[in-house]
Computed example of a mutant assay.
Amino acid sequence: MITRPPGAFRLFVLFSGSTRAALLKYLRSSAIAVICALSLAGCQPTAEYQVAVSRDLDARLATFRGSTMAEFSARTGLLPLDAYPITGGRVFVIEGQPIFVTLPATSVTPAVTRGAACRLLVSTEQTSTTRTADDWKITGIQHSGPCNNLTVRD
């Protein structure tokens, strides 16, 4: 019979008659801390990847500062859905193509499909009075949603 070492925590036993289960019956708190740290470390590369993707997208969108809405639409293929006035200009609302993700059904839950689209808020200032796409100079772009596959033609 295995006795509990000092400072160890009791874990559940899957097969009480098994030697392996008996060996895993007690773990020290340091071993539990190591297991938790290793499982949390697996999340860090994903977060770092998302930051890198967002930084890359910000850099690609920053190249549009100073260009017109006509140039933006020609290079991205995206057209504004709506616009609202702000002091000194307009903000154009642009949505990309929706992306759908489906989780398959299990024996307990039905299949679930979720859709999301890239949304861009393009801040502009008016450069002339004719109010065409060539008259709105881009001053900044904010993004939300799955925008990392936004295509930009040269």
Rank of each mutant, 00 (worst) to 15 (best):
T46L: 14
L78H: 03
A52Q: 06
T46F: 15
D56A: 15
T46I: 15
R65P: 00
R60H: 09
R65Q: 04
T63Y: 10
D58A: 15
G77C: 00
L38N: 04
M69A: 02
A47I: 12
S54P: 01
L79Y: 10
A37L: 15
A52L: 11
G66W: 07
T76D: 01
V34I: 06
Y49C: 03
G42K: 09
S39F: 15
A70Q: 08
Q50M: 10
A52N: 04
G66F: 09
T68N: 01
S39E: 13
T76S: 02
D56V: 04
D56M: 08
F72P: 03
R75W: 05
A70D: 04
L40D: 04
L40A: 15
A83G: 06
G42W: 12
I35H: 03
D82K: 10
T63L: 11
S73K: 10
R75M: 03
S39I: 14
A47L: 14
E71D: 09
G66Y: 07
Q44V: 15
V51E: 07
A70P: 00
G77N: 01
C36L: 14
F72M: 02
A41E: 09
P80D: 07
M69E: 00
L79G: 04
R75N: 03
L57N: 08
Q44F: 13
L40Y: 15
R60Q: 13
P45M: 10
I32V: 03
A41N: 10
R60P: 04
V51N: 02
E48N: 09
G42S: 11
F64P: 00
L40V: 13
L79E: 06
I32G: 01
V34Y: 05
C43Q: 06
S39C: 15
R65V: 13
G77Y: 01
V53H: 06
D58T: 10
A41C: 14
T68I: 01
C43S: 06
A47F: 14
R60A: 10
T46K: 12
S54N: 13
C36P: 00
Q50I: 05
T46M: 15
A59Y: 10
E48K: 08
R55K: 08
R60D: 12
E48L: 15
G66S: 04
R55P: 00
Y49P: 00
D56W: 11
D58C: 04
A74K: 08
C36V: 15
L79C: 02
G66P: 04
A74S: 09
Q44A: 14
A59G: 09
I35P: 00
E48I: 10
Q50Y: 10
V51Y: 09
V53C: 06
S67I: 07
L81I: 11
A83F: 08
A52G: 08
